[in-house]
Write a protein that binds this DNA or RNA. Structure first.
Lengths: 176, 176
DNA sequence: CATCATACGTACCGATCGGTAACATCGTCA
DNA sequence: TGACGATGTTACCGATCGGTACGTATGATG
């Protein structure tokens, strides 16, 4: 309403409806779980209609995958953000992320890691959502090995696995 | 068919149908997730019919809660089993459980902790399944504090939380 | 003004969800 | 035998699921 600006020269093919759906789905999927949220509820709360959803997303599963891609992007923003706060100091970067995580995980609306949760909800590896989650966890492990290597760890992969254990433990413990 | 033995003098009020449902539900709920499994699939695979399910269980949610109670019983069996293998040695008991867990968690059909998974699927604390999960995790923490106290830890609760983090991390890491 | 594509809404679809009513059948035990 | 409790059979319910055919508003361009 208050935004009467023209669509500008943005190269984005998607406009307002798709974005509203995207954000509403993100919020609902994270808070209630993907399976627990129907497409009707999404479009209702987004103030749009169902055909608008299916014009931008092939299926609910694809919308879920998109949600997870957004979630992953936000994760890397937080994670890599520490690299800029503590340039060169890998150990401080990790500790920085852990500290931020512990802060977030103790908030009342924390519901764990959206990617891990999706893997719980969709155990089959051929599901779009599961694929995003699985790929991300692999990337994260690779990243952690790079970091522990840079730290000069004697057994970088073992340390990386330990860190992964700690991270997942913090995610899971935060949701209860 | 091959089992023609009479129901014996067992004091169990429940017979064959309820038990078949119980075990089938346990397997399906753990493997596919609770929300992913419909009651029709359960009764079909159990070789019974829907009315039989609802004669023994008030609702699907209650059946899910029952599944989690069974899961929890199996957990304590494993966990307390270590107390008998290493009597008096609390540290060895914990390590023993961790070792057993790491073995199970690396198997291909491992799908994480059923109780944690249920908490992911049902975020609302008024849900029967969620209640079972939440209560269990609290009991486990209490138990861990007792053990770390017995071990003479300087800060038993802090160590217990650390162990809880490790456990949940192992559960979550095992499912991907 | 007429045109035309883009974006959106109305109304509906078949399938499946959890759950139930009513009745037939079976085995057990008195 | 007769009565009873547990189970199976069949058919059904309203609600909700994910998904779609088709008409309508809008806004820029000729």
């Amino acid at each position: 309403m208050t935004d009467k600006s023209p669509p500008s020269k943005s190269a984005e093919p998607k406009l307002r409806a798709a974005e509203r759906i995207r954000r509403t789905a993100h919020e609902l999927f994270y808070r209630e779980g993907i399976r627990a949220v129907g497409v009707d509820e999404i479009v209702t709360r987004a103030g749009v209609t169902k055909p608008s959803l299916y014009r931008s997303y092939a299926s609910k599963d694809e919308l879920a995958a998109e949600y997870l891609r957004d979630y992953e992007a936000a994760f890397w923003e937080r994670f890599d953000g520490e690299a800029q706060v503590h340039p060169g100091d890998t150990r401080a970067q990790l500790l920085g992320y852990m500290r931020g995580l512990s802060t977030r995980a103790t908030k009342r609306d924390y519901r764990g890691c959206g990617l891990t949760n999706a893997a719980v909800e969709y155990p089959h590896s051929d599901h779009p959502a599961r694929k995003v989650a699985q790929t991300h966890k692999r990337k994260l492990r690779t990243r952690l090995v790079e970091m522990t290597t840079a730290m000069g760890a004697r057994r970088p992969d073992v340390l990386a696995d330990g860190l992964l254990l700690l991270l997942e433990g913090a995610y899971a413990s935060g949701l209860m």
